[in-house]
Design a protein around this nucleic acid. Sequence first.
RNA 1: CGGGGUGUAGCGUAGCCCGGUAUCGCGCCACAUUUGGGAUGUGGAGGUCGUAGGUUCGAAUCCUGCCACCCCGACCA
Length: 490
Amino acid sequence: MGKGITSREEDYSQWYNDLVIKADLAEYAAVRGCMVIKPYGYAIWERMQAVLDKKFKDTGHSNAYFPLFIPKSFFSKEASHVEGFATECAVVTHYRLKNDGHGNIIVDEDAKLEEELIVRPTSETIIWNTYRGWIESYRDLPILVNQWANVVRWEMRTRLFLRTTEFLWQEGHTAHATQEEAIEETEKMLHVYGDFVENYLGVPVIRGRKTENERFAGAIDTYCIEALMQDGKALQAGTSHFLGQNFAKAFDVKFTSREGKLEHVWATSWGVSTRLMGALVMAHSDDQGLVLPPMLAPIQVVVVPIFKTAEEKQAIDTFIDALSTELKSKNISVKYDDRDTQRPGFKFAEWELKGVPLRVAIGARDMQNGTVELARRDTQIKETVEQAGLGDRIERLLNEIQENIFKKALDYRDSHITEVNSYDEFKAVLETKAGFISCHWDGTVETEKLVKEETKATIRCIPLDAKEEAGICIFTGKPSTKRVLFAKAY
RNA sequence: CGGGGUGUAGCGUAGCCCGGUAUCGCGCCACAUUUGGGAUGUGGAGGUCGUAGGUUCGAAUCCUGCCACCCCGACCA
């Protein structure tokens, strides 16, 4: 274990990388751009999975699983979809290796596949090809299916959690009889994501819609939640797409309606990924390490005993046993770190690095006084408190920490939404302050692209709650009816 | 995929120009003293110098190919 991590001021990317590795969340694998998610990091992902999975089921969805490999021909069926993913696909061309006679293992050219298989970058095509066989009548609809899976996108540049070649996610794929119902589903799932990220990750998000330029390949409309990281860059934390009848038409999925007419099915898809882990790290952490919201922390309370003799240790053990039992009955996860191989100071630093929300330190002095020392990770404040009523106090504190972490991120986010009314102002804010910039835009792809070329900033979203307001586009001076949010993004 | 850079112990590095079998710190192991904020001392272990080839009596060092990673750009969740 190293000592501390790079300061955020020095180099944000380096700081982030150090943090992910030193906090024991993940590391790069021996495969280009892929990562190993280590047990501690995976435990957090599992917590996210558990909460999301329940939310999906509560909204009527079921889990299913579809193949990793997708025949190449499926891809070309939806024109804009292929175009969006063509440049980042891993392709399987052979199915066998052989020994070349000189001790080298080579690809057996005789085992060339007739049709190449694409390792899924997303599953719309294979799922809609399957749905064709599942749907005949309006009575078969809606289909509300979610899949937990890994996908591969061969990006040029990778970043732990934010953009790895292979990543874990869930993808929901639903089929509906009407456009209204599909749009309703798209919006419903966006709000499931928004609530989840705010209430569990403690990261405030802006719910909005993507512009045509930033839309998912194959979607009619893309809804998104956008978060702000501590370096002032935006991060797309989740998306929910209204796919219209695009995939139904591409895969010939029709149903007979109540009125006896043959119609194409309406579709949605929505997903969040291990990228959320990156959001969690970049939204809350400090130079001492990770700061985990209690709702997702694998260890919510760590107890560090401080003792010299076996008798002292014995007394502490007895006390902590009772405390652990009480906390567990409150569904609070406790780790009693009574390793005798590390000293207390080391343990303090280590658990801080790993983001444990609350630490209890207890020594012979405390046992005499009937106290313990409580240290909050979020504020770094330590206080000595009575042992009596400790369980209830911890429970209250965890809730308070969860709220405080969210509030701190919210304050930061809100103070980094800047309204501007001219292009000069726009560029100045990007340079000096970053964050979201709220301004008028003429609604054209051309303008968005020109702004991106000049400033690297893109339209993160058109907020759902944007109010109608007459204005002029900061770039072209053409009329506009509402403000959009620009930012540099990950 | 374009431009730049770097590969030496688990991590961070010196050595490379000027060729002679690898330096230092952290970490690791043992023992002792320690234990309320990342302990100290003594001793010890750990290396295909990214990889393949070439030059040479001899290569971490010189030459060539390849690979990986990092940064910037383009691409993107």
